[in-house]
Design a protein around this nucleic acid. Sequence first.
DNA 1: GCGGAGTTGTCAAGGGTCTGTATAAGGTGT
DNA 2: ACACCTTATACAGACCCTTGACAACTCCGC
Lengths: 295, 295
Amino acid sequence: MRNPGTALVRIGELSRRTGVSVELLRAWEARYGLLRPRRTPGGFRLYGERDESRVRRMRGLVGSGLSASEAAHAVLRGEDATGASTSVPPGIAEELDLSLVALDEPGAHATLDRLFSAVPLELSIARVIVPELRSIGDRWAAGVLTVAQEHFASALIRSRLLSLARGWDQGRGRRAVLACAPGELHDIGLVCFGLLLHRHGWRVVYLGQDTPVDAAATALRRPRADALVVASVERRRFARAASALAEVGKRTTLLIGGAGATAAGARRMNAVLLPQDLADAATQLAAGTQATRRT
Amino acid sequence: MRNPGTALVRIGELSRRTGVSVELLRAWEARYGLLRPRRTPGGFRLYGERDESRVRRMRGLVGSGLSASEAAHAVLRGEDATGASTSVPPGIAEELDLSLVALDEPGAHATLDRLFSAVPLELSIARVIVPELRSIGDRWAAGVLTVAQEHFASALIRSRLLSLARGWDQGRGRRAVLACAPGELHDIGLVCFGLLLHRHGWRVVYLGQDTPVDAAATALRRPRADALVVASVERRRFARAASALAEVGKRTTLLIGGAGATAAGARRMNAVLLPQDLADAATQLAAGTQATRRT
DNA sequence: GCGGAGTTGTCAAGGGTCTGTATAAGGTGT
DNA sequence: ACACCTTATACAGACCCTTGACAACTCCGC
C-alpha cells in the first residue's frame, strides 16, 4: 500500500532521471519537505516512484512561474486532494470507451472530468487516453467501429486535451515549437506530448496539423525557441520533408517523433529520435538533449 | 480547475501573465485596494487566480476608456460598468490580431477572455472571430503572413472554440449531426456554427473534419438526430460526395453549408442550402426546417 | 487661454528575501 | 581505491519590499 515495491534509487540516479541537480534535490527536501526518502543504514537517501513524480510536478510548476516554495506547497497539497492514489480509478477506461462509442458527449465529458481530477495528467494520458485512442483506431481498422464513432471520439478527446493546453506557452522554461510533418493530420499525440512537456516546465508553441517545414522554421525565431519537434505517424511524410528538415536540423535542436520516425531518418535529418512512448519522449527532451546521446 | 487559490504566484509572475507592470500592480493595490494578496513570512505578495482575473478586468476597463479609479471601483463592485454593452470592446479585434500574429499565446488567450466575457458569443463570433479568421486567411494567401502564423492562429482559436463547445449535446432540444464533407479539413466554421446552433437550443453531435458520408449517416441513428449538416469550403468536395449525400437527403433533413455549398448542389443532393453567414445559417435551421424547404 | 489641483504610470534608492549553487570536511558502498 | 553520498554553512544573483519623488496628463475655476 505504501510502496509498490519498485526499485529504490539513490540521489544521483534521481537527479539524472529528473534533470534536477543533486544539491537542489536536497535543498527542496530540507526547505519544503518535498521529499521524504528512506535511508540506507549508512544514511544514503533512497527514492521511490512517488518521489520522482513529485520532483517532476515540482519542476513543471516552477517552470510555469510559481516560486519554489509555492510550487512545493501545491505539489504536496495536490497530493492530499487527489488522495494517495497513483492509480486510475477502476473501470474508468471502460466507462470512457462506452460513452465514446455511444456518441454520448455528456457522459464522456463527465468521465474525463473524473479522470483528470483523480490522477495527474501524465497518468491520465499514459494509462487511459493513449490506450483508448489506440483501441479505437484498432477497432476502426478492423471494422468493428464506424467512422462516425472514431471521428466523434477523436474530436471530443482532442477538444478536451486542447482545453488543458491553455497557457502552455506561459512560464519561464525553455520553449519548443511543435508541429506535424507536412501532410500529417494526426495531431492528438502531439498535443499529448505538448501537455507532458509543459508539465516538465517547458513552454510550447503549437502549430498543429500539416505544417510546412519553413513555417516551423520561422516560428522558431519570433518567440525564440530552443527546439523544434516534428511528428508524423507515417514514414513517407518525413521522407518527403527530409531535406528541408535536415537544413533546419543543422541550425537548431530538431527532434522527430511519432510512429513514422525512425533512427535512420533522424540521422539523415540531423535530428534526435524521440521514443515512441510519449512520457519517455517528454522526459528525454526535458532532461536535455545531451542526455539523449548515451542511451 | 483544481482548487481556487491553489496556485499562488508572486508579483513578477502576475505581471508577466497580465502584462501589467510590477510597479503598477503595487500602485493599484495601494491606491484602490484592487488586490489584497497574501504574504509570505518574508513579506512577498502572493496572488491567486481571483487576483489575476481582477487585474484582467481592470486592464480591460481601463483599455476601454474608464479612468483607473473608476475601473477599480467597477471591478470591486463586481459590475461591468461598461453597462449592458451589446457592442464589442473597441480595439479588441486589433489586440487579438496582434497577439496571434506575434505567436503570443497568453496574450491571445487574455484577449479572448476579455472578448467572451464582454459580449455574447454570437457577437464574438460574428464580429471578431470570423473576421479575424478571414483576415488571416487573406493575408496568408497574399504572402503577408507566414504559414506558421496562420497555423498558430487557427490552432489557438479552434482550441478556444472547442472549449466553449463543452456540453453542446446536452439539453432537450432537437439534435443535429455536424460533419465536414469527405476530404474537407477546415472545420472551424463548422464549430462556430455548432456553437451558434447550440445557443438556439439545439443539441450537437460533432464529427469534424473529413467525415465519410456513411459515417455521418450512421451517426444520425444512434442518438437519434433530426438533421445532418455537412460543410465544405470547396465545391468539389460536395461534388464527389453528391450521390451518397443525395441518398441520405431522401431520408433525412440534410443541410449543406460553407463556401463550397451552392444552390444547384443542394438541389442535386436533396439538401437545403444554408446561408453563408453563420448566424443566419443557425437562425434558419433553428427556425424550423419546413421554412427552409423552398430556398 | 491659463494656473492650480488631482490623477496616474513610472522610476530610484536602500535594503530584505528567496533560491540555486558551491564548498569543506568527512562517511558509505563495492 | 574510488565514486558516490552525507551534513553544514556560505554566497551570489534574482527577485521583492517600502518610501518618496516626478513627469505627463486631465479637469476645474477663472
